[in-house]
Write a protein that binds this DNA or RNA. Structure first.
Lengths: 154, 154
DNA sequence: TTACCTATATATAACGC
DNA sequence: TGCGTTATATATAGGTA
């Protein structure tokens, strides 16, 4: 898109490469943002600029949350097994604790909002699951998940 | 882009939301791919579809590699959790004496662990849900990735 | 790097199968 | 759901300040 059709291969000119990165990075983040809002989904985007700087983006749920969701999937659903999974998870949890603490400091009420948000997710998930299992009733169910979240209730 | 200018807010119609996701997901991945090649950078993109399916993309280096690079940055370079952590922590400790959030803040670790635990349950529930919905679907395969970039080739 | 300015190249919303 | 078509909306290459 531009005065000329650009071939998709590494831009050798140093300045042009940096400039193009700046422009397209913004475009990509905008698109990611729009997708996350329009479709109400979790998304995380990590980029390292040509000058090695981190350019992160995530929707409603923070990079750490999305990465944890990724790591907590079964290897099967994720597609590939992760090597240092446990280590990665603990690292991410540390980061998340730190940023959560910062958030809590800045806005003590955020904690309660967080809890409410999570509970909403649980309810929504439970309802969906119930509906889905309802329709599958005539088939053998994998596992009784409906009893999993009793402890989570207020 | 389209016959009508679309407001950036959650698409409530279920079908439209899914359709829009499919289209924009492909567009976003294509853009991410082009950026990674043109600017020769590391990039990782994780999306969870409205039906909770993982849609991953990464350039030359695989999601796990990018994740590691992210985690291996210094807290400072990563930027997010806040640079003056020492200050915030001491601030936190003082606050816990004064506010009625005291009990919760006194042991943020325990609370966060609780939250992590609950989130794991959510992940598990979502996966279970995906499996159930999978069975209710006709075409379980995600978009054929290999067809995405045909036009980009010289 | 960043901002703004076109001319073009792309993406995509609504529709039809 | 998945595709192709078409009319519009956007993104952006190249240039300039």
């Amino acid at each position: 898109m531009g005065r000329v059709k650009l071939a998709i291969k590494r831009i050798e000119n140093n300045t042009n490469r940096h400039v193009t990165f700046s422009k397209r990075r913004n475009g990509l983040i905008k698109k990611a943002y729009e997708l996350s809002v329009l479709c109400d989904i979790d998304i995380a985007l990590l980029m390292f600029s040509p000058s090695r700087r981190l350019c992160p983006f995530s929707g409603r749920h923070g990079v750490e949350d999305v990465l944890l969701r990724y790591l907590n999937m079964s290897d099967n659903d994720r597609g590939e097994p992760i090597q240092n999974r446990e280590y990665l998870i603990s690292m991410l949890q540390r980061l998340k604790r730190e940023s959560d603490m910062a958030t809590q400091l800045a806005n003590p009420g955020a904690l309660n909002e967080k809890i409410e948000e999570i509970q909403k997710e649980i309810y929504a998930c439970q309802q969906q699951l119930q509906i889905s299992e309802e329709r599958l009733r005539y088939k053998p169910r994998p596992a009784p998940f409906s009893t999993l979240f009793v402890r989570s209730r207020p």
